[in-house]
Amino acid sequence: MNAMSHTQADNAYNFGFLDEYAKKEVRRAILKAIAIPGYQVPYASREMPMGRGFGTGGLQLTLSLIGPDEVVKVIDQGSDDSVNAVNLRRFIEMTCPGVSTTTATTECTLIQSRHRIPELPLTAQQIIVLQVPYPDPLVVVEPSEDKRKIMHGEADYSRLLVKLYEDIVKFDEITISHRYPTRINGHYVIDPSPIPRWDVPKLNDSAALTLFGAGREKKIYAVPPHTIAEPLAFSDVPFRVEDFRDEQGRRRACARCGCVDSFLDEFVADSGSKTYQCSDSDWCDMQLQQVKPLQGKPA
């Protein structure tokens, strides 16, 4: 790789904000992460012009993968227009001339996301980058990183499974809602960033490459395309995704588009009544567009 400077006259920065050496280092870490699915590769996480915890890990991945012909989509909790997503998108637009951004999942080639994977199945042409606050699923049972590394190496997740066991004993079900520990390719267990349980099955045999970047914790890991990703569970207490049924046992629908097979956000009004809407705003728009022409047809 040519690590020479590509600084342009009107731009004080390299393409993609990071210098070539930084991009080279992050890309090497990405390649290693892909070669060992689920393994947390340490890397030299840089200071970015925003605070740690605002997605600096994901942003470094994005900026080291990005090229001038990329179409980028940024999601925050499923939404394209929340503050975090808007600011990250503007930062990418400002520092990467020529890159186009979009909110449509179908059009993008590179997705940076916080807490969600789009409802629409991703394709082999797309890469999704997830921002990760806590990369290590074992941190809840073992405080020492040295010992955690050994446990990962030997695929010894018994103490994590005991956590699940205790959950079933106490609450009759596994109560982990986000960051559900998931075993990748039969060995390493990852913390799939705080995506809801709903999104965990999407990692399994996904056509797109999924990358995870933790800025503060300085770790990169990956789920390569068409890799087995199985959430930890017991053979007689299988993994379940969120259940959106109401008291009568009917599946709740999105109040905006009427969709009955997406992950729903709950909105509580001042009066205490609850409404539900698709968490993925682009999906919701797509559903609405499909519904509208139907309604427009004369009877």
């Binding site: 997740y157 018994s158 499974l161 066991y165 004993v169």
Partner: peptide, 19 residues
């Protein structure tokens, strides 16, 4: 962790995965 959980840890180590 509970008394049962302590025993479960040893069992889970040897890949008994049935709750």
């Amino acid at each position: 962790i509970s008394a049962g959980g302590n025993i479960a840890e040893r069992l889970l180590m040897s890949d008994l995965m049935d709750y």
